[in-house]
Nucleic acid binder design. Sequence first.
DNA 1: ATGAAAGCGCTAACAC
DNA 2: GTGTTAGCGCTTTCAT
Lengths: 403, 403
Amino acid sequence: MTRSSLTSGTTDGSGITSGTRDETGRATRSRTRDETAGPATAHQAGTDATPSPDASADGRRRAATIQDVADAAGVSRAAVSKVIRNAYGVSPQMRTRVEAAIARLDYHPRVAARAMRGATFTLGLEIPQIGNDFHSVIAEAAADVLADTPYQLIIAPIRDPQVGDQALQSLVDRQVDGIVAVAPLVSTDWLESLASRTPVVMVGRHDVSAHYDTVAGDDETGAEQVMEHLVELGHRRIAFLDIDRSRSTGKSYISPTGRDPHSIRQRVYREHVGALGLRPRLIQAHGHMEEDAAVAVREALGQTNRPTAIFAGHDTLAVGALRAVAELGLEASEVSVAGFDDIPIASHPRLALTSVDQQGYAMGQEAVRLLLQRLDGRTEPVRRVMPVTLRVRASTAPPRERS
Amino acid sequence: MTRSSLTSGTTDGSGITSGTRDETGRATRSRTRDETAGPATAHQAGTDATPSPDASADGRRRAATIQDVADAAGVSRAAVSKVIRNAYGVSPQMRTRVEAAIARLDYHPRVAARAMRGATFTLGLEIPQIGNDFHSVIAEAAADVLADTPYQLIIAPIRDPQVGDQALQSLVDRQVDGIVAVAPLVSTDWLESLASRTPVVMVGRHDVSAHYDTVAGDDETGAEQVMEHLVELGHRRIAFLDIDRSRSTGKSYISPTGRDPHSIRQRVYREHVGALGLRPRLIQAHGHMEEDAAVAVREALGQTNRPTAIFAGHDTLAVGALRAVAELGLEASEVSVAGFDDIPIASHPRLALTSVDQQGYAMGQEAVRLLLQRLDGRTEPVRRVMPVTLRVRASTAPPRERS
DNA sequence: ATGAAAGCGCTAACAC
DNA sequence: GTGTTAGCGCTTTCAT
């Protein structure tokens, strides 16, 4: 009933349509309308004949649709649609009327319905680990940039690192207008195919791609600076701490090109160590969390001829290393630790972690800006490499005893 | 081409459909049709050698729809729908055929289309600040619990704390099946109305609500333990560090009932300080970030008769306080710091922050579990309060000089 | 400038 | 057990 009163004004118009389709359509609508309200949605379907639903009164009323707004404003759905999209072809007075109705009914367009035809005004951010501060900074930057746009941000955390594409796919299924992905272990082929359909910006990978942009730090230079710094301090037993990637290779998710940040950092480490005629020492953590690193480093430091310096693949691991070092009562002159990313906590005086600043916040900003450009029509891929700076702090010091 | 080969065998079947609808449908399809099957998606479904795996060739094909799958499997859309929803009424052989077609076409149901009729199998998590480790832990727990379910998690960060309901509304617009919200500054009325339409679980608020569940720590006891601990150590000049909330009161978003965690913690602080006949000292940070706290504490410590202990509203602020304290070369015996939440970094030996453990991970888990229960039909509200434990660490110590 | 109508891809009712 | 069909709430031609 509510429905029929709402539509009554347009019922005649529907008669224009050809044949059965419309007729049944009308009939069914008034039927389903009410019951849709029913189940868990608790719609209430207030039967009052009031043309203007006054949504504020009742907390259970069905949410207003574009049709409700159109009826309330005495215009067509198309007109309302144009108003809410700021599209061309609406007179000021109509706009005013429609906006008033929207406000009155507290109308919010359903994103799902929009997705069926047009844009969702939603951008997806995919991050590998929620707890990693470097990723948080990127997310923060992304959210900040988007604050001045009509776009909303949704974040899809990766469940299982082994199936990094799941989170990405979930974003696709959700028909986001664009995606910023942070270094997931996804094959470049898959990415390329995805990017040919949806605007994509990859953060932290140096892929050479045809369809998506990349924003990455200068991992090569950063790792070089760390190694030069440690060597200059006098360290010779330098270990590289990273996640045990061997377990992931099974499904060959790892970028085989070695263009991911960690492969590069480790390669540079190996090169430097090799150039000095030293043997590489790898400390493998079983996970990406701080505690995983602490466990691995505790063990490594328990062995004889322990390293005097640890270069961690990223800061979260470095903080974990520092934990193990501190627990053992060791100082930087005994075991130095350097990281990568310069996460906010690294500069805390109690940690004073030497780290490579790759401007995470700027990277996040840039990634979203590039995505907005793509949304705006750009198609040629862009590869952005952020300059890095080594922040030397107290966690690295000359070794007490030279090896 | 690819497409035609796929449909060729079933084109006749499509003729079954009535009239123009189908005709245009076909037309559009063959036009846009091209590729979708992402190689790396690992769908591959062992059943190779089938006609039309291709897909890897072209990166622009339109994604497969349920109709494509139906055609490829030679069944109806409804049949496919039943298969993907695990619904009743599908013969094993049809299931097999359909699943093969799904794998072959790399079909993924569009969430938006689903949302128009049924469930989205998406749960939304709303968190106030992305960079706050306590929130990260909750998000992590939520993601972990959901890993064993068909539900996907999306996170909506709050843009502007002043308009906390925006992120929540965005989740609603997206028609998520349920929402976990972490202590946003939203009016209880609005929440109640929202919760009457969508399953909602609030984390960190002690609201007494009719339609949503709450999961919160025992803020009262936690704050009491902190104060008792500090007083017992001998502190008398105890300051409370929190965010300056006065600026937010403009739109009265703050829960007027004082049931939010920070109001409670501050109230307990005031009560204890009052009972000792001391005057309360408030240090107000201008934001929720560590640096905001550091700025405020730096200033507070510069004044004469500075506090000998600081009770921070939450750990991120506490870490910031510790930063200011450390910068000034002060130790716990000069300025003690205690926090709330016991975020992972708090236990780092270099920080050793005394804090109240309110089991953030368990809270996140419980919140999602409650939400799943609601999804399963429960409607009576549940209020869960997590027991707390004071973790005493080195950041608090007896004051060198008693005041 | 405005409105009518055709779907977008899916699920749910209902036929068979 | 399987297929047919009517929409969900929007955007978008295309008339007017």
